[in-house]
């Protein structure tokens, strides 16, 4: 029982890392980013590459890859996505364009990644057992969990307490209304998209310390992130975290108590049930 709680919590930390970035990108900047998983893989590749070629600790990689990803994602938004945002007359049109464009980007990033490393990003970092209230787990998962919590908490406090955070939330509620009260919507959107990309890349660095990834596996994380964001309700950080918690705990519980073969099926079933009873996700707002 304790095992389920501990493993489940740690797994939900992973999921939160995967989903928080996309939540900002979709919830605020309105970009359904299908290249989200590939950005995560870029972070993982950087971590693997620096660790295996020059023994740089992933924790150090984290420190400089996060701002680097912020800059790259800001540039992507500014130069590749802004034209689409400008020309889109409706949210639906933007959704269609961003699906097409980011799907293209995901291919480009896969191409770049496999030309650097076509095989598995296999390395081991902090692969040491550690006992938490009687349940054994690995240090690398624990470290990732702690950092995920820190990122989540910082994000939540910033969104709710700071001026700029409030602006971001205002944009996520309504771009028109936010524009009317004098918020620079394009700037806030670009910032949110870049921040989302930075968090995703940080997630990639951390996840690569305990999951063996390869250049083509990004789509798996994109799918998971989409599921979690939608389950939690678009644009709500709490929602994404609660959804990540539910999935982590359900998967671990099913794997331990019923059959590991059903873990992913159970996770998707949970997602489906949530949407059946709450069509706008756990914390979503009813569309007006």
């Amino acid at each position: 029982m304790l095992d389920i709680v501990v493993s489940g919590l740690l797994l939900s930390g992973t999921y939160a890392l995967v989903a928080m970035g996309l939540n900002l990108q979709y919830g605020v900047a309105r970009i359904m980013n299908l290249a989200n998983g590939e950005i995560l893989i870029l972070g993982a590749l950087a971590s693997f590459w620096f660790y295996t070629t020059s023994q740089v600790s992933p924790l150090l990689t984290l420190v400089f890859i996060t701002p680097a990803s912020f800059v790259v994602n800001w540039l992507i938004y500014r130069f590749l996505l802004t034209p689409l945002v400008r020309r889109a007359k409706t949210q639906g049109a933007l959704e269609v364009d961003s699906i097409l464009a980011t799907f293209g980007m995901s291919f480009i990033i896969i191409g770049i990644v496999v030309s650097i490393e076509g095989g598995f990003f296999a390395y081991n970092f902090l692969l040491d057992p550690i006992s938490i209230i009687g349940s054994t787990t690995s240090l690398n998962r624990l470290v990732a969990f702690v950092i995920a919590c820190a990122i989540g908490l910082a994000l939540y406090l910033w969104l709710n307490l700071s001026r700029s955070g409030v602006a971001v939330r205002a944009v996520s509620v309504s771009t028109e209304a936010a524009g009317l009260v004098g918020i620079n919507v394009p700037r806030v959107s670009a910032f949110a998209f870049a921040l989302g990309g930075a968090i995703t890349a940080a997630g990639g660095v951390l996840i690569s310390t305990f999951i063996t990834l390869d250049g083509s596996i990004g789509v798996v994380f994109t799918l998971k992130a989409l599921i979690i964001v939608i389950m939690g309700g678009v644009g709500d950080v709490r929602g994404a975290i609660v959804a990540a918690l539910i999935l982590g705990l359900v998967e671990t519980a099913v794997a331990t108590l019923i059959d590991p073969g059903l873990t992913l099926a159970a996770a998707y079933l949970m997602f489906i049930l949530v949407l059946l009873f709450r069509p706008e996700g756990l914390f979503g707002r009813r569309a007006t």
Binding site: Y26, M32, E95, L223, L226, I227, V229, I230, V234, D259, G261, L262, L264, A265, Y268, L269, F271, I272, L275, P279, E280, G281, G284, A287
Partner: peptide
């Protein structure tokens, strides 16, 4: 409706694949 429908179908497809494999 909207994006909730999109991702619901995606999640459902993944669930079906997992159930079939199992």
């Amino acid at each position: 409706s909207g994006v909730y429908f999109v991702i619901f179908t995606l999640g459902l497809a993944e669930m079906i694949r997992n159930v079939v494999s199992w």
